[in-house]
């Protein structure tokens, strides 16, 4: 079931992209940016608006790594795991960060305070290892810098 507020967001997202060709991704981005995730229950509503099947919309939402079916933590740490960051020791930084933050890559802390996840390339490859913390880029990071950025 969609909460009233969620339904309002979905309707606004659909209305905002009414003239848009190929509107599925813009609508899903709009919903995720307003709600922090894409609740399963919105997919039939979006599907109907786009005259597509629920299965198709589920296929779209589940294909892309960005769309979450549950909210992320209040702080979101995205640590790059790609080659340029590997060359600057991100495997070690990841292990140390996991230890320090008390959660593994891909996990959200039980109190909902923090999500730590992998990302593949932020285009910051000349100041690796790199991360995005709540959307803000950080270069040459180590576990201490990540912990400090989320107040740990």
């Amino acid at each position: 079931m969609l909460a009233a507020e969620q339904l309002r967001v979905v309707e606004a997202a659909i209305a905002a992209h009414r003239g848009t060709e190929g509107a599925a991704l813009p609508i899903l981005h709009h919903i995720q940016s307003a709600l922090g995730f894409v609740p399963q229950a919105v997919l039939p509503v979006v599907a109907e608006a786009l005259n597509r099947s629920r299965a198709e919309l589920h296929g779209v939402a589940s294909f892309y790594h960005d769309f979450r079916d549950a909210p992320a933590g209040r702080h979101l740490v995205q640590l790059c795991q790609a080659e340029a960051c590997q060359a600057m020791g991100v495997r070690q930084v990841t292990r140390e960060s996991e230890q320090r933050l008390g959660l593994a890559l891909g996990e959200t802390s039980p109190d909902g305070a923090l999500t730590l996840e992998a990302v593949y390339c932020l285009g910051l490859c000349a100041c690796a290892p790199a991360a995005l913390v709540d959307g803000a880029p950080l270069g040459r990071v180590d576990a201490a810098a990540l912990a400090a950025a989320v107040g740990r």
Partner: peptide
Amino acid sequence: VGAGAYVCGEETALLESIEGTR
């Protein structure tokens, strides 16, 4: 705006993505 799929850098996958599909 893409949505975190590396393969969408491939031109036909990119076109699919603009069209709103997988």
